[in-house]
Simulated assay, not measured.
Amino acid sequence: MTPVLARSKPFTPHAARIGLYTFLIVSAIFFLLPLLLMVMNSLKPLEEIRQGNLLALPIKPSLDAWVTAWKDACTGLDCKGVRPGLWNSIKITIPAVIISTLAGALNGYALSQWKSRHANVTMLLVTVGLFIPYQAMLYPTVKILSNVGLFRTYLGIVFVHVIYGLPYTTLLFRNFYIGVPDEISRAARMEGASFLRTFRSVILPISTNILVVVAILQFTGIWNDYLLGLIFAGNDNLPMTVQLTNIVNNARGAANPNVNMAAALITAIPTLVVYFLSGRYFVRGIAAGAVKG
């Protein structure tokens, strides 16, 4: 007797899956729509924007606003665009990210290895630093840097970003290293390696995920900073964010929304590039537990 094969049920998407994808699509549209409008209006001549067609596609697309924002827009008395601020932001962000990430890794590893009843208290004090607003620390920081001659200097702004980022980076690294088996460090010490040698030769090579995560987060925060750059950088080291604000708030002549939007996009491009180039490593670090704890 020939067995009767059960008829397979037609595939019907589960209601929860439909709801999830609907939510993701709506969220993506919600967050991408402002970016799309900025791109569209940065490509429009000023005459089109003055006609009130902010939501319409550009009739005659042009990169003139981008060129003006890059090298001709006025940031106060200087009309050099955001181009000078690009190098300032790079020379501030790169060393601040490297120093704060490595220092946070060393602090986090030390705290994870510190087997004492004072370790948790110390970690609590470090965590408290995350919740103190910058505004509450600005005046003491200004006084300290003024007394040592670093106020409104290049070294001063790098130092501020490193110090203000240490509680955050230390917390992330400490939570990561708590999950690393103690046998790894113990084996290195049995071979005669010192604390720093163990950290450099054993711990750092297995910390790729957390290093990428922290570096990306630090890069984004420092690059997009406005307040600290305005106060501590000095006129010769103003980052792009400060120059962008000066362009938008410039009172000389009529407002140019297309130039303002182009300048904002130029300022945001480096962070977008970083995420596109290292996004998969960032996701891999999150999935591997780089921010657990």
Rank of each mutant, 00 (worst) to 15 (best):
T75P: 00
L35N: 12
P167L: 03
T169D: 04
N53T: 13
A188V: 07
I231G: 01
P140W: 13
A215Y: 00
L145S: 01
Y226Q: 07
L36D: 10
K115D: 13
I144M: 13
A255F: 14
I163Y: 09
L155Q: 15
S194F: 11
N88D: 05
V242E: 05
V4Q: 15
P95M: 08
V212G: 02
S207N: 04
F199S: 02
A16L: 14
A290G: 06
H161P: 03
V126H: 01
I247K: 01
L55V: 12
G85W: 00
A96Y: 02
F159C: 07
A193L: 14
V26Y: 11
L125D: 00
T267F: 05
E48W: 01
G149W: 10
S278V: 05
L55E: 12
T241I: 13
Y168D: 01
A15I: 15
E183G: 06
G108T: 04
I94W: 03
A290W: 00
V97H: 02
A28G: 14
A56D: 15
W87G: 15
S278H: 07
G293P: 02
V39P: 08
L228V: 08
G285S: 11
L37A: 14
N258M: 07
I178S: 10
N258K: 04
G221R: 03
Y139I: 06
H14S: 12
P13F: 15
K115G: 06
L106M: 11
L33V: 13
R152Q: 11
N260P: 04
S89M: 03
P140G: 07
T22L: 13
L244K: 02
A73P: 05
V202R: 02
T22H: 11
I25L: 15
V259T: 03
K143G: 08
L150S: 03
T245K: 06
V248E: 05
Y164L: 13
E183W: 13
S185D: 03
N120W: 09
K80Y: 12
G81Q: 01
G192N: 13
N120D: 11
P10G: 10
T271L: 10
G52P: 08
Q135K: 09
A251V: 13
L230W: 10
C79A: 08
D225Q: 00
N120L: 12
G293N: 09
R284K: 15
G129Q: 00
K71T: 14
N246T: 06
I210C: 07
L124T: 09
R83P: 10
L244D: 02
F195T: 05
F131M: 07
W70M: 07
V160T: 07
G165N: 03
W87C: 14
H118Q: 15
A188N: 09
F159V: 09
T153D: 10
R197C: 10
M123Y: 00
P58R: 03
D64S: 08
A56R: 15
L196I: 12
V273G: 02
F11G: 14
S201Y: 12
T153Y: 05
T101M: 06
G234T: 09
A215D: 01
V291C: 08
L46Q: 15
F176S: 01
R174W: 03
P45G: 06
L230H: 14
F30T: 14
L35E: 08
S185V: 07
N246A: 08
P61Y: 09
